[in-house]
Design a protein around this nucleic acid. Sequence first.
DNA 1: CGCAATCTTGTAATGAGATAACGTCACATC
DNA 2: GATGTGACGTTATCTCATTACAAGATTGCG
Lengths: 136, 136
Amino acid sequence: MNEHVHPSADLTKNQSLVMGALTKSDGPLSAYTILDQLREHGFRAPLQVYRALDKLVEFGMVHRLESLNAFVACRHPDCDDHETIAFMICETCGLVSEISDNALANRLKLLAGETRFALKKTTIELRGICRNCQTA
Amino acid sequence: MNEHVHPSADLTKNQSLVMGALTKSDGPLSAYTILDQLREHGFRAPLQVYRALDKLVEFGMVHRLESLNAFVACRHPDCDDHETIAFMICETCGLVSEISDNALANRLKLLAGETRFALKKTTIELRGICRNCQTA
DNA sequence: CGCAATCTTGTAATGAGATAACGTCACATC
DNA sequence: GATGTGACGTTATCTCATTACAAGATTGCG
């Protein structure tokens, strides 16, 4: 069995709305942007968004980008390892792409192991300019 | 010449005070914590801290921890590459250690290069429990 | 010297991100 | 039908960060 099933069917109403907003969006959204988009659906307070986001992140359907204080729908092809994903963030167009690289993950695990560090979560975010935005 | 000279001599008064607070501290400090510590030295507004921090980060003397919204004095042994440093952050004791690993840095550069992504800055933060805190 | 350009500083106000504390409601289980 | 659990709604508050504007300080040059 896959541990990272995306339980889209089991989402509550609020979770579905938040997930929908993120899926529709091209790039990452802040919690407050999501809130504004969902006001017409009855959302009134940040906590409604944050609670949904917490669950979606827990389910592995959404990632939090620490360097942006924003959230993106998970789009990486294989769902093997939600704990060691790298993000490339274009500072020009805002595009975010996910990278799942075993060599990278293993190297980090090795480094942690060397000092007996019990690794729980990794944040890897690359900021720069994507190919498209350079030629433009 | 080393491009990452730490120009401690050239720091302004505010920059020195902020740097001092970070150097004295065992772990990372938030901007507002620094502000509180420096009130007796005449600090009154967050901006005074943020301005100093911006410069110190620019000089490579201070690192920003994105996943903590906090700052640490640079303590990593070699100053070769301020752009690709990994941090291990203990969630129990707050200890932060810096890792400068070439294999890791090269792998990231390779991954970025594959998609012609012009890498500007990398954020690598490992959260977990350090060796000491596990045995305790 | 006198003046302009630039950099650093101080202050107030505000914007943006996140959570605490409270109460309520729906639903499952025994 | 009592009880536990999880999602929900609301208000207030907290933390983090920036904008905008004014005042000094410093450098460089005619």
